[in-house]
Design a protein around this nucleic acid. Structure first.
Length: 427
RNA sequence: GGCCCCAUCGUCUAGUCAGGUCCAGGACACCAGAUUCUCAUUCUGGCGACAGGGGUUCGAAUCCCCUUGGGGCUGCCA
């Protein structure tokens, strides 16, 4: 049975590059009807932290990437690694150096691997130094315990980043020494930062968690990541995990490294926001806001749905919602000074505002269509363009020159608040 | 330095494996226009690439070589 593994090291948050590796492993396993195992590479006891692991698992679930079976912890298997190392020592394939056990690499050989993404890659063992299996402190070296575990777990395909290419011949040597057949390898080109250098903090967020906090949706994260080095073969850009599983073939993956592009990522996120139905989106925005200290509790549910409906085409991330709609939740909203001068410093505009307010006062039905009718009537009576009333009004009720359609905004805000703010601005 | 991976618009890519249908298609971004009460959405149009040089071939983005450029590894990190 096809079995792959994702092997995070719990020494930090889930990096976007690691998430991409997990995603490709997941797509491969699910497409084959196989399994994806999780192995915790926590041999470095000082740097490994339980919180990091929890966070990583949380992120994987959030992304919709599930795994099979129990987790394997390398930290619990030191005795196994020691036993295997001593077995090779007894077989004359290794030697001691202090407390370390080191594998003797035979020169003059060629190790060839048939990589699923790169094709054939050959290495000379002349380039490979003797390999540490057990370090002086008794902990296993990466390439050794990796092989011991992958062999024992029955891993059939190893899909990982290009940065592991040069580890591969060393690992193949260990498979041979242990009397096992190596699995099939597939090395994915790395995802770089916008400038082509390794994706790091100075490029902005590097962890899944950071993008979650910035208001990205899991479907968008996964969608963006899958498009790096792979395409469905047609011109589609928006694909769900389940659609991708059907079309995925690792042989179609590009062997060219790619750059992380926040603009395209953001565009995909906006596409998902627009495609999400309003009730669902409202729930997401509510939980986002409450997790990030934005108080939206003052609004009733049906009004909130209206508001979300008005703004869903105007936000690219969940984080953008509140700053745009602040004036619907508090009287203490920010005011665009330039806009205020432009629209509210003019005597004529304030007079129009006052007339509009007086007429609104008499309204019973405060639906946006009625409000618009009243506004246009006034414009006609006073020989004005509707815009001459609309802009000052938007400024008065929201503090901003930009926003949703004015009449819809007024309806959601409610007659009372609208009048209060218009009167104040008209003074 | 050595070994290894790679090279199509600014970016992600289709096309490369099976050379002709590609004076290279799509998307993001950018620019312009249409719609509109602003912003956004939506719709139209525009800009923009086969790194360079040699081969092979009737014919090369596609095959080969070199150069240049980028990346990775070169830890008793993982």
């Amino acid at each position: 049975m096809t079995t792959v593994r994702f092997a995070p090291s719990p020494t930090g948050f889930l990096h976007l590059g690691s998430a991409r590796t997990a995603l490709v492993n997941w797509l491969f396993a699910r497409k084959q009807g196989g399994k994806m195992l999780l192995r915790v590479e926590d041999t470095d006891k000082i740097r490994s932290k339980e919180e990091y692991l929890e966070e990583i698992l949380e992120d994987l679930k959030w992304l919709g990437l599930d795994w099979d079976g129990e987790l394997t912890y390398q930290s619990k298997r030191f005795a196994v690694y020691r036993q295997k190392a001593e077995q090779l020592l007894a077989g004359g394939k290794a030697y001691r150096e202090g407390d370390a056990i080191i594998y003797k690499v035979e020169n003059g050989r060629t190790i060839e691997i048939d990589d699923m993404i790169h094709g054939s890659i050959a290495f000379s063992t002349d380039e490979i130094k003797d390999q540490v299996m057990l370090k002086s402190d008794g902990s296993p070296a990466y390439n050794f315990c990796c092989v011991v575990d992958d062999a024992e777990l029955g891993i059939t395909h190893i899909i990982r980043g290009d940065d592991h290419i040069s580890n591969t011949p060393k690992q193949v040597l260990f498979y041979e020494a242990l009397g096992c057949n190596p699995p099939v390898f597939g090395h994915m080109p790395l995802m770089m930062g916008a400038d082509g250098a390794k994706l790091s903090k100075r490029h902005g967020g590097v962890s899944v968690e950071e993008y979650r906090k910035e208001g990205f949706m899991p479907e968008a994260v996964v969608n963006y990541l899958m498009l790096l080095g792979w395409s469905p073969g047609d011109d589609r850009e928006i694909l769900s995990l389940s659609e991708a599983v059907k079309l995925f073939d690792i042989k179609d993956m590009s062997d060219v490294q790619s750059r992380f592009d926040i603009q395209k990522f953001t565009w995909i996120n906006a596409e998902y926001i627009k495609a999400t139905d309003t009730e669902q989106l409202a729930r997401l925005i509510r939980s986002y806001c409450s997790e990030n200290g934005m108080d939206i509790s003052s609004m009733k549910e049906d009004e909130f749905l209206e508001l979300v409906d008005l703004y869903k085409v105007r936000i690219k991330t969940l984080a953008e919602f509140y700053p745009l709609t602040e004036s619907f939740f508090t009287d203490d909203f920010r005011v665009d000074e330039k806009g205020r001068k432009k629209y509210l410093d003019k005597e004529g505009n304030r007079e129009n505002l006052k007339v509009f307010a007086d007429r609104i006062e008499e309204m019973d039905d405060f639906g946006h269509e009625k409000i618009e009718q009243v506004c246009r009537d006034i414009a006609e009576e006073r020989s004005l363009k509707a815009a001459q009333i609309i802009h000052p009004t938007r400024m008065a009720i929201s503090g901003q020159t930009r926003g949703a359609g004015l009449f819809e905004m007024m309806e959601v805000l409610g007659k009372e608040k609208v009048l209060e703010r218009m009167r104040k601005a008209a003074e």
